[in-house]
Write a protein that binds this DNA or RNA. Structure first.
Lengths: 152, 152
DNA sequence: GAGTTTTACCGAATATCATTCGGGGGAAGT
DNA sequence: ACTTCCCCCGAATGATATTCGGTAAAACTC
């Protein structure tokens, strides 16, 4: 789908305030509400806008500790990767997990309440998965930037 | 702020669909629209809900390559950390940046169009920052999980 | 280039929604 | 027992989303 400047402006605005009313959005992009709504619907149906979400503060919901874990798997069997991926998707503590090139196999981003909770998660859940050979934990000490908006 | 079960249900729902109407949300949590709205406003003002955002598909906006970069700084001067943090916050390619314990100094998550764009970003922007001693790039090959919702 | 189709837009009408307000009722506190 | 506070409700109203017919310009066809 081809995006013109008005589309990009809409996307920039909705990334910052996903609940802005359509009439206010229309004012900001100098279109009628009807035309604006039509553009937004098109962006939604074409998949440019995946969804809308409320972003919560991790601290206030008892998820104050953020960690990254490098995970290396045994390469003995092909479906070990699949079963690892499946298991990780089912873990609520894991917010993101990527297969990466360049030294280890998976990079896992996890949110837990505190260091105790992380120790339990690592020992009782993550390292118990079949095929996990080695892990290395990086504890986040400071959030320098956490910008979920994409630069359009 | 203390959250009861209804609050948590509201948060779970709004994380999945940040644009749900208040009347539908009220139906789902078995409250009147007025009471539901009051709860949502309270969650917003207390900071549990930080904001609402439209989540875009990176591919469709030409940001198909996701990379993680480990960055090590010279520890010669204290304000090198500050200037690095400041510079990183101003880079649109950097979506997240954390100071981490455990072997290197910063973990940077960046989105770019392709490998060429990444090479340019690394060579012309990131490694040119004062104090950057060493970088190590991990290219994401597969997105196993990318769940921005917090487990409530 | 005349005709045709497509695309994007508008304004008005209507259905739906957000928001406010007065008040009820139960729990906690005095 | 009384007061206070908290959470809830229903009704009213003002704002909004959404639909629809119509217009004009661009793109496409012959």
């Amino acid at each position: 789908m081809a995006l013109d400047e008005i589309d990009r402006r809409i996307l920039r605005i909705l990334q910052k305030d996903g609940r802005m009313t359509n009439v206010e959005l229309a004012r900001l992009v100098n279109l009628s509400p009807a035309a604006t709504l039509e553009r937004v619907r098109k962006l939604e149906h074409s998949g440019v806008i995946r969804n809308y979400m409320a972003r919560l503060d991790p601290e206030t919901v008892n998820l104050g500790l953020l960690v990254f874990v490098q995970v290396t798997l045994d390469r003995t069997s092909a479906d070990i990767f699949d079963s690892f991926a499946k298991a990780v998707r089912a873990m609520p503590q894991v917010s993101e997990c990527y297969m990466v090139a360049g030294g280890f196999d998976y990079l896992v981003k996890a949110r837990v309440r505190d260091m105790n909770a992380y120790r339990a998660f690592l020992g009782k859940t993550l390292t118990r998965l079949p095929g996990v050979r080695q892990t290395h934990t990086y504890t986040v000490m400071e959030e320098v930037k956490a910008d979920l908006e994409l630069p359009i």
